[in-house]
């Protein structure tokens, strides 16, 4: 009877722990997805900067450097 009691208690504690771990996993998954999106944006930004730097300082579609508004 004691064994049965212990098994029931263990089952209950394991079920609770699994629910917690599932939540933790879900949180981690969404954080990883967010960081990956940030990384993707950073890589895109890097390519953009590389492209503009190769044209520097004439890298503006609407402005020619040294042109002052009078």
């Amino acid at each position: 009877m004691t064994q049965l009691k212990e098994l029931r208690a263990k089952e209950s504690s394991l079920t609770e722990m699994i629910a917690r771990k599932r939540q933790e996993k879900k949180n981690l998954e969404s954080e990883v997805a967010a960081r990956k999106a940030e990384l993707k944006k950073c890589q895109d930004d890097k390519s953009f900067v590389e492209d503009k730097l190769s044209k520097w300082p004439n890298c503006w579609p609407d402005y020619t450097p040294g042109q002052e508004v009078k």
Binding site: Q3, L4, L7, R8, K10, E11, L14, T15, M17, I18, K21, R22, K25
Partner: peptide, 18 residues
Amino acid sequence: IQDWQAKVNALDDQLKNL
């Protein structure tokens, strides 16, 4: 007891995987 043990074992495995 056998049934409960099987249940606990399955949960243990699940926890390990998690």
